[in-house]
């Protein structure tokens, strides 16, 4: 997609053709239509702005009561403590959810980015030409599988498959003092790591699709320059394709990250929803910002519980906005380099 390329009638009318004698009624109909499409265009901006406003409004009572930043400095989330009253409500710190979101996204990115870049390179430069399109469609198909199916599959197919490997890690590396802590057992199946793995599969096709477009935009004459120097295919990729694509790959990864940060149902199904505190091992159970909302939203009846979930939603929205805005800026710059 070309970023600033002007198209459409607007571009033509910048150099208007002499159009003679338009009737008043036609002009009226025309401007009504113009106003209508402008309005629909405005809906996009309106929805985004309304999201921020409504999430803040809903979370405001909790933010007021606990202090604006208190939730992101504490990891005590205890909606079910019995003694809660309106004046002394339960604590709602959300650091453990931010931690869960960051950790699972990180695991997903570490696995998905190299695989997606590799898959995209195969599609653009390595595979035999007639296989490129089908390969590309198949990788795209990974993005078509619904989140709830990934979660279900993760729960029943992925967890049993990775259990022997994870058990081995927890019983060897996991028993080493200090450096073994992030790999400690026991492994219940649902965990940060499992969620990260499922996320990796889910964001891989998204990153691969953007990378594919970026790699495809490498000018042919630069590839030929490399080949004419005697470069092997890998050397051609390394000197002609990848250096140009650097910011595109970063942007693609950010788009993937944005998706990972917000992914909800699959994560909720395989992370264990342990909300009480940060668990130090990646093989232990946890929760993310999105999973806690999905998991507790419809049962939030205690004072400030629902409001605190909106606070989580607000911060999630902020993170997603920042990541996605950054991604789009980087991708646009990358592709039009």
């Amino acid at each position: 997609m070309s970023p600033a390329s002007a198209g459409g009638i607007a571009a033509i009318e910048r150099h208007p053709l002499p159009i003679a004698l338009r009737g008043e009624r036609r002009r009226l109909g025309d401007s009504v239509f113009g106003a209508a499409v402008a309005l629909t265009g405005g809906v996009v901006l309106l929805v985004l702005a309304a999201m921020v406003v409504f999430l803040v409004l809903q979370g405001l009572p909790a933010m007021r009561h606990y202090g604006f930043f208190s939730s992101i400095t504490s990891q005590r989330w205890a909606p079910s403590e019995a003694s809660a009253t309106l004046s002394t409500p339960n604590p709602y710190g959300i650091v453990q959810f931010i931690y869960g979101t960051v950790l699972t996204s990180l695991i997903g990115m570490v696995i998905a980015v190299p695989l997606a870049v590799g898959a995209a390179l195969v599609i653009t430069d390595v595979a035999p030409r007639r296989l490129r399109r089908p390969l590309s469609s198949l990788v795209d198909l990974l993005a078509a599988v619904p989140s709830v199916v990934y979660g279900f599959w993760g729960l029943f197919a992925l967890i049993p498959a990775i259990r022997p490997v994870v058990d081995f890690i927890t019983s060897t590396l996991g028993t080493v003092p200090v450096i073994g802590v992030p790999f400690g057992g026991p492994f219940f199946g649902v965990s940060y790591f499992t969620a990260g793995l499922v996320l990796a599969i889910m964001i891989l096709p998204i990153i691969a699709a953007v990378c594919r477009e970026v790699f495809r935009s490498t000018p042919r004459n630069e590839k030929e320059a490399a080949v004419a120097l005697g470069a092997t295919r890998w050397e051609m990729i390394r000197i002609a394709v990848l250096p140009r694509a650097r910011s595109g790959i970063v942007g693609a990864s950010l788009i993937g990250l944005g998706r990972a940060v917000g992914e909800t149902i699959a994560v909720t199904m395989v992370i264990g929803n342990a909300v009480l505190h940060i668990n130090p091992s990646i093989f232990d159970q946890g929760a993310t910002m999105s999973s806690v909302i999905a998991n507790e939203f419809t049962e939030a009846t205690e004072p400030f519980h629902l409001e605190s979930l909106f606070v989580v939603g607000f911060w999630l929205l902020i993170v997603a906005l920042v990541v996605n805005m950054l991604a789009r800026v980087v991708v646009r710059r990358g592709v039009s380099l």
């Binding site: 459409g8 996009v44 940060v261 997603a320 906005l321 990541v323 991604a327």
Partner: peptide, 29 residues
Amino acid sequence: EYGRGRLRGAIRFFNDVLIGIPTIVTGAF
């Protein structure tokens, strides 16, 4: 077909951003 200048750019940009907004947030909204 119609947009010009900043508003048009903003709508394109934020439309892309809206694609990436977590759907759980959309639900909460």
